[in-house]
Design a binder for these strands. Structure first.
Lengths: 166, 166
DNA sequence: TATTGTTATACTCTATAACTATA
DNA sequence: TATAGTTATAGAGTATAACAATA
């Protein structure tokens, strides 16, 4: 099994209830949520990155690899490597554009539609697991507070920024 | 500049205010907070991992590399590579244990003490930045809700789990 | 023989650069 | 000449395994 730290120990201010707190707790819980999701989605033979790509194509069918690269802040050659396995798995189809035969139009296959249904199931179960500790009211409260931060920090809804090493 | 996706696009349920939401927003905000912290701490010539290690040694001076490996869920050889730069930078000292000359006792140097002060400054500024959108009351509320989740999910206070690939 | 830490090796992720086909 | 995508190469991060010193 291949593990990675990425930024394993971002510990800063010490235990909870000390100065600081929210930022670290967000990083900690965010990593936990991402890890758990990766585990669950792995049972479908997918990675979180796969899921994100499928969704981006589902939202805007026919988009090019370049546009994906731009939105992800990633180099085009990376997108090639990212789409390849989805193509091989029969989930994404590369169709040469007839207007400009240099680029591909990316489309989901019927098989991908079925897989997306499975993904939605996993996502719902995941959400439930993460929020187990909260009442419905608390859940709504939390959502509101998190959105305040996300909006103020200028985060794009639905786009996970990834983790960049310094 | 070396960038990495790690699990860049963990997008799942689409835009905010849709079903799901909290888990993804946590992952998104957590990654954002971790990235911003890495940027800031990078100005001190440190990585988030460095900071976590320094803190772990500060909390329990004299601990061994093995104990770090165990707590981090990382292989001992990894700890060697992790401590090396801190040793070279004159922040951590490896002292051979007199009771058991196989292991080292890890200690922070005086220089590390000064660096830790800088880290605390950065952490405070970082916390302020992340919480800009919130009133003090909202901040307290958020902290409480996040702790509910963290406790229920069994997360260790102060230990960032890192991001493991499936 | 078992344990602490190190070194050597291999594998994965990712970016950069060179290349092909098309415009 | 410029653009979409691919391939080749190199560097960083990390685990596995073999090793040295000590117990």
């Amino acid at each position: 099994m291949n593990r990675s730290l990425c930024s394993t120990v971002t510990a800063v201010t010490g235990s909870r209830k000390q100065l600081g707190g929210v930022a670290f707790l967000l990083a900690q819980l965010g990593a936990h949520a991402a890890n758990r999701f990766a585990e669950r989605i792995g049972e479908l033979g997918l990675t979180p990155v796969d899921v994100g790509l499928l969704r981006m194509i589902a939202v805007e069918p026919g988009r090019s690899q370049q546009s994906l690269a731009a939105e992800l802040g990633v180099v085009p050659s990376r997108v090639t490597a990212l789409i390849d396995p989805l193509d091989r798995a029969g989930l994404v189809e590369r169709r040469r554009s007839k207007e400009d035969r240099r680029n591909y139009e990316l489309h989901l296959t019927d098989k991908a539609g079925e897989v997306m249904a499975g993904i939605r199931q996993v996502a719902t179960a995941h959400e439930g697991e993460i929020c187990t500790a909260l009442t419905d009211l608390q859940r709504t409260h939390l959502m509101g507070l998190l959105e305040l931060i996300a909006d103020q920090q200028g985060l794009t809804p639905g786009v996970h920024p990834g983790y960049r090493r310094p």
